[in-house]
């Protein structure tokens, strides 16, 4: 079983994507050996009030419920976002994505803390992409900078009951997420989409690896499989999965067990 915790449907405004419809994404998942994938509509990150995109998502993937796992998108600046959260639960959405850099609120402020706390109280995991696209190529209309991992670390510490998945981050082993000892037992996760394992570009011998350090130092329980399909290739995450220096039980946690638990998935 392989669950992709970092996939998308819909339109990226600044570049044409392929495999961004439910049927096409499932075909791509088949080619990649991926059984299930969490998805939300990319464009919800650009909507001031994303609830209609959440409703459309629930409708569109209803026939594909055995393969695609829907995530809602919340904007805590939208009036009555708490009702949107309740509606997401009623729609059967399994988690929430937040986009501070697109909905324009600080990563360590009161708005995001309130939203994350509300999700935690509903037992919904929160997905916060470190970035959607490489900021070095961003379109002039795209505010999409990468988030500050130190701020995300503060958020994790501020809402310790929450499950927070920070996707698309790199490098990780020497980032505040792992270096802050007070976070090590909390429920934060990162994925395999961008971070390397055994080799990283380095100018000193203490930084020759990335995820391999995290694993050696006991952090494998913070890892999830995620690709960033169809914005990124799936191949990099699949190659890293093949090279992970972990035992079989840990590998199964990374491929699907941890994700299934976070998403409250039943068998099948």
């Amino acid at each position: 079983m392989l669950i992709d915790t970092n996939a998308w449907l819909g339109t990226w405004p600044f570049r044409s994507l392929r495999d961004n419809t439910p049927d096409a994404l499932i075909a791509r998942m088949d080619r990649s050996g991926i059984d299930k994938a969490v998805v939300s509509y990319i464009e919800a990150a650009f909507h001031r009030h994303p609830q209609s995109a959440n409703e459309r998502l629930a409708r569109d993937i209803e026939p594909h419920g055995h393969r695609l796992i829907p995530l809602g998108t919340l904007n805590p600046l939208s009036p009555h976002w708490e009702r949107d959260l309740t509606s997401c639960i009623d729609l059967g959405l399994k988690g929430i994505r937040l986009f501070p850099q697109y909905h324009n609120y600080p990563t360590h402020g009161s708005e995001i803390r309130s939203a994350v706390q509300a999700c935690a109280e509903c037992d919904l995991p929160v997905f916060i992409p470190h970035r959607l696209e490489d900021a070095r190529q961003h379109h002039w209309m795209d505010p999409g900078h990468s988030l500050d991992l130190a701020h995300l670390a503060d958020l994790i510490a501020a809402v310790p009951d929450a499950a927070i998945i920070v996707s698309n981050a790199r490098p990780l082993a020497r980032s505040p997420l792992w270096m802050r000892g007070d976070l090590r037992d909390l429920n934060w996760y990162v994925d395999l989409s961008l971070a390397e394992i055994h080799y990283g570009l380095h100018r000193n011998t203490s930084a020759m690896k990335d995820l391999a350090y995290l694993i050696e130092e006991g952090g494998a329980n913070h890892l999830l499989f995620g690709t960033h399909l169809p914005i990124s290739y799936a191949g990099p995450a699949l190659v890293k999965l093949a090279l992970l220096p972990v035992d079989n039980q840990t590998r199964e946690n990374i491929t699907h067990r941890t994700a299934a638990k976070l998403l409250n998935l039943t068998q099948g």
Binding site: S32, L194, E196, I197, H198, Y199, G200, L201, H202, Y233, A234, G235, P236, A237, L238, V239, K240, L243
Partner: peptide, 16 residues
């Protein structure tokens, strides 16, 4: 080439 992104560069060619 890899330029430090070893698994990523292999993966993108395999997936292309």
């Amino acid at each position: 080439g890899t330029d430090g992104t070893m698994a990523g560069s292999v993966g993108k060619v395999l997936d292309a």
